[in-house]
Amino acid sequence: MSKKITNTKTDKELIIEILLRLADDRLIHGHRLSEWTGHGPELEEDLALANVALDMIGHAAALYRYAAVIEGNPDEDYYAYFRDDIDFKNVAMVELPKGDFAYTITRQFLFSVYSYFLYEKLIETVENEQFNGMLQKHFKEIKYHLRHSREWVLRLGDGTKESHERIQNAFDEIWMYTGELFSMDETEHTAIEKNLFVDVSELKAPWLEFVKETLEEATLSLPDDDQYMFTGSRQGRHTEHLGHLLAQMQFLRRSYPDADWK
């Protein structure tokens, strides 16, 4: 049985959907990184992880704010606190539990390489000035996230026997969640026609090349790319982990909707 998928999204709905996809990736990843606060392997690394978490949550907040303006929604926090897991459009990779330090660094690295190539291409493509301005601002921070995580991949890979094993395991475990980064759906194809998004499938080759070079330098082996890949998160079909994350992240705001900082 085949069903013709037709995209009936208006231009407004389309840009909101694109903004939310980008923002959800960054909010959920930022939240996972924030779980390290107070638990970092060294004081300095604790600060570094918290900084990156803040950067990513900042990127998400800016994207949500713009989506809220377009939607005519007075409260951008709504997107973070009052949607359920099926409404979140982040890739599964970012919702996986933080694991050990090697696991967190591996995820950060794989996602940062992807973000680097994605933002580079988006900045060339997106005609909407406000959207493009945000991308340019965030791109600088993405370059730092990439540098920080890449340096750690090199040190853990080419470090002790234990650090090598741990980070190799992390790459092997996370790899099945990388396929989603480069898969395209109807929304994205339509967004490309409106110069609001880019063909992410084209980012796979430069991403793989960059990852491969880093892994070689780190004396690590590239996981088998021809393996089962997790899919569906962009359409709201998440792993079990997102629900637990949201329960913690949204609890206070939902239980005390009027709470404020005063």
Partner: peptide, 20 residues
Amino acid sequence: SVHAPDAEMALQNARDTYAR
């Protein structure tokens, strides 16, 4: 001051500790 395993990481830790 910061603790770091090598120069590059010292630079990054310095950035994260003192240049935020």
